[in-house]
Amino acid sequence: ATNIVGKVKWYNSTKNAGFIEQDNGGKDVFVHKSAVDAAGLHSLEEGQDVIFDLEEKQGKAYAVNLRIK
């Protein structure tokens, strides 16, 4: 899926990971530091509006192509 709108639920820069809550009510999506880095960002803030694509690896959904809304 592409161009999904959501809000950062939480992001821990020590653990280099967090979750994004989908505005469409879907399951929360894992976001890794690699996606944050690829977006040219240093970190994510709780409640921040984002747009992202979903990629599945080994049955788990990940946020990729992250951008700030």
Rank of each mutant, 00 (worst) to 15 (best):
T2S: 10
N3K: 06
N3Q: 07
I4N: 06
I4F: 07
V5A: 14
V5W: 11
V5K: 15
V5S: 14
G6W: 01
G6D: 00
G6F: 01
G6P: 00
K7G: 01
V8P: 00
K9G: 02
K9W: 02
W10Q: 04
W10F: 09
Y11F: 09
Y11K: 02
N12Y: 06
N12E: 07
N12A: 07
N12G: 03
S13P: 14
T14K: 14
T14S: 13
T14Q: 13
T14N: 12
K15M: 15
K15T: 10
K15Y: 13
K15F: 13
K15N: 08
N16F: 09
N16M: 13
A17V: 14
A17K: 09
A17G: 15
G18E: 00
G18A: 03
G18I: 04
G18Q: 01
G18L: 04
G18C: 03
F19L: 11
F19D: 01
I20D: 00
I20H: 00
I20W: 00
I20N: 00
I20Y: 00
I20T: 00
I20F: 04
E21N: 08
E21A: 14
E21F: 09
Q22V: 14
Q22G: 07
D23M: 15
G25R: 07
G25T: 07
G25Y: 07
G25L: 06
G25F: 07
K27Q: 11
K27T: 09
K27V: 10
D28E: 08
D28G: 09
V29S: 02
V29R: 02
V29I: 12
V29T: 04
V29P: 01
F30E: 06
F30K: 04
F30L: 06
F30V: 05
F30N: 03
V31Y: 03
V31W: 02
H32D: 10
K33E: 04
S34L: 09
S34F: 10
S34T: 12
A35P: 01
A35C: 04
A35M: 06
V36C: 02
V36S: 02
V36N: 01
V36D: 00
D37V: 15
D37Q: 14
A38W: 06
A38D: 08
A38C: 09
A39T: 05
A39C: 03
G40C: 09
G40F: 06
G40W: 05
G40R: 07
G40V: 03
L41I: 09
L41K: 04
L41E: 04
H42Y: 12
S43K: 12
S43Q: 11
L44F: 05
E45W: 15
E45D: 10
E46I: 15
E46D: 08
E46G: 12
G47I: 02
G47Q: 04
G47K: 05
Q48K: 05
Q48S: 08
D49M: 15
V50F: 03
V50I: 13
V50T: 02
V50K: 01
V50M: 06
I51V: 11
I51A: 04
I51P: 00
I51Y: 08
F52V: 02
F52S: 00
F52D: 00
F52L: 02
F52T: 01
F52P: 00
D53F: 02
D53H: 03
D53Q: 04
L54N: 01
L54E: 02
E55K: 11
E56V: 15
E56F: 15
E56Q: 11
K57H: 11
K57M: 10
Q58Y: 14
Q58A: 13
Q58S: 13
Q58C: 14
Q58F: 13
G59F: 05
G59L: 04
G59P: 01
G59H: 05
A61R: 14
A61Y: 14
A61L: 14
A61V: 15
Y62V: 08
Y62C: 10
Y62Q: 11
Y62W: 12
V64W: 05
V64C: 05
V64L: 04
V64F: 04
N65P: 00
N65L: 02
L66Q: 00
L66H: 01
R67K: 09
R67T: 05
I68L: 13
I68M: 09
I68A: 07
K69P: 12
K69Q: 12
K69S: 11
K69L: 14
K69M: 13
